[in-house]
Structures are given as C-alpha cells and as structure tokens.
Design a protein around this nucleic acid. Structure first.
Lengths: 168, 168
DNA sequence: ACAACTCACTTTCTTAAAGAAAGTTATATT
DNA sequence: AATATAACTTTCTTTAAGAAAGTGAGTTGT
C-alpha cells in the first residue's frame, strides 16, 4: 500500500526484527536519552524537539515492543516515568558502539563528545569489541558471520545471491 | 515544515550524527547486506523488496555520507558495484551487537539465526563487549558514559534536565 | 546488424505519516 | 476557586513511501 511503511516482521532475521522495533530515528534518540537517565514525556519533547504527537506514538510502539515501561510518578499522579526494561537496557552496547562510530566519523575539534568509563574504577573504556568464547579480544577484521542453527533459508538465499555475483 | 523529516545535523552529538546518516530502516538493511557481501542494485531491490525509487535515494544518501562508494562493473559497463568504504566497514561492530540483540529478543526455536566467528580460527565468537584500555573485558553493567573533552553544553544540559527530575 | 534483453535507475500516482500549532483532560498547587 | 502543568490528542498541510510502469545506455544472441 502506498504511504505505508514496509514491515520487516516476515523477514526471518534477528537484525531485521531489531530494525522493525527500533529502526527509526526517533526511537533511537529516545532510547539514547533513556539510557542516559531521561524519563519524562516533557523532557523528550523539549530536548529532542520531537512533536508530542510523534513522541506519543513512539513511546507506545516502544512499550508494545517491551523495550520501555511506564509507571505513574509516585510523587505526582499527573506525571509518568518511562523506563527501560531489561530488554531495552541490553541495547547499551549497540548504543556505545554507534556513539563511538559517530564521534569518530563526525569528529569535533577538542576530542570526543562522549567518553565511556568503567563505573567501578572510573577508568576510561578503550572501546567496544568482539570477544572469543575464551575471553580473548578479536580484531574487527577477523569477525565474520554465518548462518546459525536457527538460521533460515533466507540467509542462505542471500549468500547464494551474493556468490552468483562475485567479481574480481 | 510539515512532512519534512527533522534533521539532526545541528545536534552536537556523535550519536545523533550517526543517526542522521544511517538511522533509517532501509539504510540499516542495505548496510547489513553490504556487510554480508551484496553489491548490486538489483539484488538489494529483490532481496529487501525495496522499491527502486527508495533504493536509489538511499544509495545516493549513503554515498554522500561517505559510507559506500560505487564503481562500474569491470565485466559489464551496465552494472555498478556498490561497496562499503572504511567508514562503512567500521559499522561491523554495531551491526554485530544489534544482530545479537535482535536474535536474543526475537528468539527462534532451534537457536540463533546468525552466529559470529573468528575468520582466523573458525571458532565461534562469545559476544560483543566493552573493553578497558588495558584490554580487560567489562561487564555491561559497569559501562557508563560522560561528557568528553569535545563534549558540548547540549550534553550537560541533558544531564541537568535529568538530574532535576530524579525520583526515588 | 538488429532485435531482444538487462541493469540501474526515473516517473507517475495514491496514500500514510511527519511536523506545527492549538486544544483537551486529569491532577496539583496557590 | 482559579490557575498551572503533565501528558497527551486533534487538526491541518506537506512530504515522502510504496506500487507499478517507463526510460536509456549497454550487452547478448542470431
């Protein structure tokens, strides 16, 4: 249907499912602010300059996806407090890696805008990386993906599609 | 202006800049396929069921952002080969982490759809994580962020906004 | 050499959703 | 009782998404 955004629900792929849930500029920014501790409708509205209509829709979508949950402000029944669920909290790494990438490739004189640190030691974090089963760090270049046990024909079809095209 | 999607270019924040460039469902999926080795207009078109109009726009946007680059197929001057630039390749970690999250929270009987492995040893990868400067792995719960040297008033303003609201 | 075919787009047309701004409702404060 | 505030909802206009058909340079088959 024209105008309707395409849904990826039928795509048998974890990545596509993730994008179905949070692959929207506003969702990304809202979750980012939630990860930083923001909780109020008003604050998202003001800080992100998002219209209240769209904000309400996004909060509803994120709630339905089980990424956030709202509760009434115990001090003032008018207010709601929006918080990340464990599912939402686990996006922290994705956000860290994306923030690092963004800061690297949209650089600013003076240094990074955001730095990550270890809350136990206060030390700055070196970065985000893939880790072997034995706890060894792996160079980004060594990381590749393949179809897992729950993988579908879709992924193999993709591989075939790609193989058929190989140049050079 | 109504209908115009909001731009985040003025937001002084690496994360927002990243979202400005790739924070769109189609861009995400296109880059995912590029990371898996897909290179052709036709293949994105068919595999993602994206309309050619929108695909052309996205490829243009990603090219302008310096994330992909096109070259003519040396074997057939009709065809173009789209490839990730180093900037684009560096999104691999973000994609790995997001795929892992999506596979975990949209689970499938039988196991993960996609598994990551070390191209040197063939061993499966344990996961993605934050790493200290000294190369130690950090528990996700220990990771937090703060304003860096290039950080702006925007982030501090956000922190203030949040602090003002603290409950419990 | 010429027709048929491919690839990478454009164009056209319809409709859903984004943005701006004003309005609503249920509490809360004075 | 009057005013304020938080979290939405409504209205209205415009842009962009989606479907489908069309275009043009380049290639292949005969």
């Amino acid at each position: 249907m024209p105008g309707t955004r395409t849904s990826f629900k039928d795509m048998d792929c974890g990545f596509a499912q993730a994008i179905e849930l949070i692959g929207d500029q506003w969702c990304f920014l809202i979750i980012r602010n939630l990860l930083l501790g923001m909780t109020r409708f008003e604050d998202f509205n003001a800080h992100l300059s998002i219209s209240s209509k769209v904000l309400a829709h996004r909060l509803e979508r994120l709630t339905a996806a089980g990424i956030i949950k709202a509760r009434v402000d115990p001090r003032d029944a008018r207010g709601k407090i929006y918080e990340l669920t464990p599912k939402g909290e686990e996006l922290k790494l994705v956000y860290g890696a994306l923030t690092e990438w963004g800061d690297k490739w949209s650089p600013k004189a003076g240094g990074v805008r955001t730095e990550f640190f270890d809350t136990k030691t206060g030390d700055m974090i070196g970065g985000f990386a893939a880790v072997s089963k034995t706890g060894r760090l792996l160079d980004e270049g060594r990381v590749a993906s393949r179809t897992g046990p729950g993988g579908s024909a879709v992924r193999d079809e993709l591989a075939t599609m790609i193989a058929r095209r190989m140049v050079k």
